[in-house]
Amino acid sequence: MPAFSLEPEQQAWCAELRTLAAQRLRPVAEKGEPGRVDRALLAELGRLGLLERLFTSGALDLCLMRESLAHGCTEAETALALQGLGAHPVHAHGTPAQRARWLPAVADGSAVAAFALSERAAGSDAAALTLRADPDPDPGAGGGAGRGWRLTGEKCWISNAPEADFYTVFARTAPGAGSRGITAFLVPADRPGLTGSALDMLSPHPIGALAFDGVPVTADDVLGEADRGFRVAMGTLNLFRPSVGAFAVGMAQAALEATLAHTARRDAFGGKLSDLQTVAHQVAEMALRTEAARLMVYAAATAYDDGAPGVPRRAAMAKLLATETAQYVVDAAVQLHGARALRRGHLLEHLYREVRAPRIYEGASEVQRGIIAKELYAETPPPAGEAP
């Protein structure tokens, strides 16, 4: 299927999701407490079958879900995305026992997942993480058997912390080995030695820090292979980065539609605001950039689903373009609406707060440019007659 074309069934599904977001999910989200996990909203997402779909859909379907939900209820979109981000490593790399224990509960919304990669000094540079996994002489203390470790250190800027029920945690099992010495662990929140604290952030969902004081883990808790956890992290991010772009596109589309409606009815200078060429051209630019970002997101997701080459570069391009575009579109929409857009409760006031964070999380815009450049140079053969 060409990346720029959706089948009628997909278009109908997106329309259904936008309706569900506005009519079923938005009323639930409005009752939630900012900065806390909205378990009622997760339960509703579970009843609608959307959380289960996280584990049966490809990258393009994930993008369509996130874009469509973001159009009508950003809180529902984020709740769904965080469940997927935290649980995807379990789905993709977990043992049968790990999957049986956690994935059904994630799918029905009764268990909250979190992806614990970032640290205070290792946010953008994920390979520099310092959370230690030291060999444990008594591995049975973690409730498992065989090889064991004790986790010591901190994680920071973790979405759904400290309220999640389990964490996908990335720790250093081989000191001095860079990205080659990291292991992914599934760590239940009630594991002894694990504590967390909330951070007061510009975010409707909880973001917190985690402290690991000799937290016991065993081979039963490893996701994938020991010392190969960086692959787990990057594989997860390559899937979810285009869908971060889809989230951004959904917000941009909502801002664009609000701006079209406002400028078409707003009286100004003896006519409608839309009659002013500067305004009309601004709206055209907003639409142009939104559609370009959407197409790049769909192309990156389709490349992932098809196993095409260059997925890290495409994923980085999609996230970069879409998040930067959404920031531009929402800001332009606020400008064209004027002071009314800054009132608490206005759609654009909400989007203005929501749109900023995606340019940072799952790799800041500057990191995405670095990935793109690295991949481009890696794909470029050296000039004839020169050694590589």
Rank of each mutant, 00 (worst) to 15 (best):
P309I: 01
K272P: 13
A341G: 03
L336G: 00
R265Q: 14
M286V: 03
E285A: 14
G270S: 11
A315C: 02
A300Y: 07
A264F: 07
L276P: 00
L295Y: 07
A293G: 08
A258V: 05
R294K: 03
V330H: 04
A322L: 14
L295H: 08
T302K: 13
G270W: 11
E285N: 10
V334M: 01
H262Q: 05
V283D: 01
A255M: 04
A326Q: 11
L320Q: 09
G271F: 11
A293K: 00
H337D: 00
D305W: 01
A315N: 00
A333E: 05
R344W: 13
A287C: 04
V334T: 02
T290W: 02
R313Y: 09
T259H: 04
A301I: 11
A301P: 00
A299F: 07
A252Q: 12
A300R: 04
A300G: 02
A300N: 03
A315M: 07
G307Q: 06
R289Y: 04
F269R: 12
Y298H: 10
A280K: 05
A301R: 03
V311L: 02
A268G: 07
L288M: 08
R340D: 05
H262A: 07
K272H: 13
V330D: 13
A326E: 13
Y352N: 13
Q277W: 13
Q327S: 10
L288K: 12
D275W: 12
T263R: 03
D275E: 11
E324L: 14
T302C: 07
H350T: 08
L347M: 05
L347I: 01
D267L: 15
T278D: 02
A284Q: 10
A292I: 04
S274F: 14
M317W: 10
H346T: 08
Q335W: 06
L276V: 15
T263A: 08
H281T: 12
A308F: 05
A261V: 12
D331E: 15
Y352R: 02
R313L: 00
R343M: 12
Y298L: 09
E257N: 10
A254S: 14
D331N: 06
T259C: 03
E257R: 11
L288I: 06
R340E: 10
R313E: 11
Q335D: 08
V283P: 03
T325R: 11
A315T: 13
E349C: 15
R266H: 15
A252G: 12
Q253K: 11
Y304M: 03
R314Q: 06
R314M: 06
A252L: 09
R314C: 00
M317K: 09
A252I: 10
Y298F: 11
A258K: 04
